[in-house]
């Protein structure tokens, strides 16, 4: 390796975590959407909250390579924590959010200590088991969760004592956008840190990471806990903005759907969720409005097309196109 190319490589690595102008695009779009689609803010807030959930799922799946089918467990714990507090007099949304993160993080830490000792299919099964067990527990503990009727009677106070959650979703939209921004800042910092890099290393080659002395298990538990906290925050957002929690926040269905959304956008690329989640949810909204009986078919068709023609998700396809342009000047 020549000195010049080494310097070039170092410069590339040094640049990769610098903010690029393109990264402002999602936020500009999100603010613009508020003014362009005033009738769609309730959906918008749900998309933003789900985006945070997608980011957290991408941290474990895309970066750390932990294949999970139970990520809704943390989302659900967060949602029920925030919901339970709001239904029992602690109506401050910020306190609810923080409590939800702590509770979800605790569940993530404890289950991670057990689950992350295994690999491959066992991880898949164990994450699934945690999710199903929590859902069944929520179904049985009707006095706390309301069971199949859902947790009703939440009274969420205005954000910072000033902005009431309204039916049209004005407050919900800004609140979700703010929390998402913080979540994104944390996620971005993590994936570009040396800790984030070591996660990618673990994903690509566990044996080598062990050999060079990386505390693999500890790293995995850490990222699993952080991801669980973010998922818990997303769950709290959904609970507080819709003022309702139901058993499906803990469903395996949801765990699968969030994976589908980030795969649609592109896994392990931070912005995959920013493409996949809105695309999936807007498509779902449009299709189910136009064709309320067979809308699932159109969603399925969309997914088949993406899987067939855009491997690596939409961002992966975009990369491939860009590369072709660069190669043939």
């Amino acid at each position: 390796m020549t000195a010049k190319s080494a310097a070039h490589t170092i410069a590339t690595f040094a640049r990769r975590h610098r903010l690029r102008p393109m990264e402002a695009l999602p936020w500009v779009l999100a603010v613009a959407a508020y003014f362009v689609f005033p009738d769609y803010l309730a959906l918008g807030a749900q998309i933003l909250a789900t985006l945070l959930f997608g980011l957290s799922a991408d941290l474990v799946l895309g970066y750390a390579g932990i294949v999970t089918l139970g990520h809704a467990a943390f989302y659900g714990v967060g949602a029920y924590t925030a919901g339970y507090l709001a239904a029992h007099g602690v109506g401050s949304p910020i306190i609810g959010l923080i409590a939800a993160m702590v509770a979800a993080g605790a569940v993530g830490f404890i289950s991670g200590l057990i689950i992350l000792r295994t690999q491959g299919l066992s991880i898949l099964m164990l994450t699934l088991v945690v999710c199903v067990m929590l859902q069944e527990a929520a179904n049985k503990m009707t006095s706390i969760t309301g069971g199949a009727d859902g947790l009703q009677g939440m009274e969420v106070q205005p954000v910072l004592g000033m902005f009431r959650f309204d039916m049209y979703g004005h407050t919900a939209y800004w609140y979700a956008l703010g929390v998402l921004f913080l979540g994104w800042a944390v996620t971005r910092t993590i994936v570009h840190s040396s800790f984030g890099r070591s996660l990618t290393g673990i994903r690509e080659n566990v044996a080598r990471m062990n050999a060079i002395g990386t505390p693999v298990f500890f790293r995995l538990v850490t990222i699993y806990t952080i991801s669980a906290m973010l998922a818990g925050a997303a769950g709290a957002l959904i609970a507080e903005t819709t003022q309702l929690v139901a058993l499906n926040v803990l469903s395996v269905d949801l765990s699968g759907t969030i994976l589908v959304m980030i795969i649609l956008g592109g896994v392990g690329r931070l912005y995959g969720a920013f493409i996949g989640v809105p695309l999936y949810m807007i498509a779902q909204d449009r299709f189910s409005t136009i064709d309320p009986t067979y809308w699932y078919f159109w969603i399925g068709l969309l997914l088949v097309l993406v899987v067939a023609f855009a491997r690596g998700g939409i961002l992966g396809m975009a990369d491939a196109v860009l590369r072709r342009f660069k190669r043939s000047p």
Partner: peptide, 17 residues
């Protein structure tokens, strides 16, 4: 509007919309 089953949050969103 299709609520896809016993999903109170979906039903609530659909009614709001």
């Amino acid at each position: 509007r299709d609520d896809t089953g016993a999903n109170p949050d979906v039903a609530k969103r659909l009614a709001t919309e």
